[in-house]
Amino acid sequence: MKFTLGLAACAAVVVATPTKTVEKRDASQANAACASAVTLAAGSNPFSGRTLHANSAYASEIAAAMQSVTDTSILAQASKVAQTGSFLWIDTIARVPLVAQMMTETPCTDIMGLVIYDLPGRDCAAKASNGELKTGELAKYKSDYIDPIAAAIKAAPNVAVALIIEPDSLPNLVTNANLTTCSSSKSDYESGVAYALKTLNFPNVAMYIDAGHGGWLGWDANLKPGAAEITKVYTAAGSPKQVFGFSTNVAGWNAFSLSPGEFSTASDAKYNKCQDEKTYIDTFSPLIKSGGMPAHAIMDTGRNAVQGLRAAWGDWCNVNGAGFGVRPTSSTGDSLVDAFVWVKPGGESDGTSDTTADRYDSFCGHDDAFKPAPQAGQWNEAYFEMLLKNAKPAFS
């Protein structure tokens, strides 16, 4: 799904006006926390009354890319993207220090979004976004990754934080158990996610365990096993009260509400009624709740503006023709959906289209994948400009 960027891309800057100058963040704007400790009450919507923070790391990445752009329209639109709230991926141990930096820049009006994403044997069913830790390195995941993240959050109790916990991990155990890479990762995945949930359970934190999307766990045969896997790990963690539910469509392409569904005419459509994420969430949530876990959801709308682009549900890599979707908001029209959020940073590649590369995944070579594309996590300016062009609502 995603791989790391260099720390040099994470200076505290924002994209400026179309003059192409880059300005430092104003100290008053970065006046971090509230005057008192934040408590995100169980059962509440942690995004209500708060703005998803537009983190400086993504803004800096956009600013660096815009230095070679001369089109004033693109510059203006890019500036607005940089000012839109998005989650920051903590996908390597080297990026853990960014957590403390993010705490200092998040104002009281905002909620900081972080993706916890560095399990041993990460993304066991894909090649493009395999992680730095090998299967069996659970102790290192705990001590060098989760523990320092917890320390940084604990040191900033006046900052509201939303965490997405390990995208793709538990869904892979449900549907890809036949792969040796996934079956051998099962113990580390379950123990690692449980440890993260237990250790990051602070009053100012709202956690969402990743549940794939409707085209993954939404199949009739996957719904109950998927819910059982997630609630099993939640229970193993001691049922932490700061778990608010699950995340869907992370780095994905599915529509929230679409009738008929994108793949409703497929020959196997009768086996999956979850043709959009609203149906998936409304169907999956009761199963999660019956397992004793809070069952609200957040959905990634970062790149899902255009539908009908994929040849199959499972085509996940750099989908051609995509556009930035609905901006982050807690006004979702569904009482089970706490917020639409931007999770995958638009412009960062999902994986390389270079068939000779070590990390090449065949999905990045499919006919519906954008080409050329660099390694996962690296910037693809042409793709970013396509996302701008196809954005709904448009960036004016």
Rank of each mutant, 00 (worst) to 15 (best):
D367V: 12
L223E: 05
S191M: 09
N55E: 14
G85K: 10
T332I: 11
A228I: 09
Y383P: 02
K344L: 11
G308L: 11
S73D: 14
G131D: 02
A126V: 04
P157V: 10
P46L: 03
A8S: 15
M1A: 08
K273R: 13
P107V: 06
C182I: 03
E105K: 10
A305R: 02
S60M: 00
A63R: 01
Q83H: 13
S396P: 15
A151W: 10
L309W: 11
A357Y: 14
P294F: 04
A54S: 09
K224I: 14
G212P: 09
M66C: 08
T17E: 02
M103I: 07
A322Q: 15
D168L: 08
T181R: 13
T356Q: 03
K186Y: 08
Y195N: 04
N320C: 08
G218I: 01
D144M: 04
V205M: 06
T51N: 12
A369H: 04
M66P: 00
L119A: 07
Y117A: 01
A194C: 09
A16G: 07
M103R: 08
A339P: 06
A227M: 10
A196M: 02
T51H: 13
A35R: 06
K344A: 12
P171G: 05
K134M: 07
G261Y: 02
A32N: 14
K371P: 01
Y58G: 01
C274Y: 03
P120D: 04
G314A: 10
V243L: 07
A322W: 13
F340E: 08
K154I: 03
A394I: 01
E166L: 10
E23Q: 13
G308C: 11
S290A: 15
S353T: 08
V306I: 15
K224A: 15
D300A: 05
S129M: 04
T21G: 04
A42V: 09
N254V: 00
E137L: 06
S185K: 06
T352Q: 00
G323Q: 06
D338L: 09
V306Y: 04
S48R: 11
Y141N: 05
A64I: 13
A128E: 10
N45A: 14
S48V: 06
G261T: 01
T4A: 15
M386C: 07
V115K: 06
V193G: 03
I111K: 12
P157E: 13
A30Q: 05
A27Y: 11
M299V: 02
A357L: 12
T248S: 15
S285C: 04
K127S: 15
A211R: 00
M293D: 04
P157Q: 12
R303H: 09
D147Y: 03
C34H: 03
T175Q: 14
D118Y: 04
N31I: 12
D147R: 07
W89S: 09
V96Q: 13
G131F: 02
P148N: 12
V161M: 14
D268L: 02
A78S: 07
Q83C: 05
K273N: 08
S187M: 03
G131E: 04
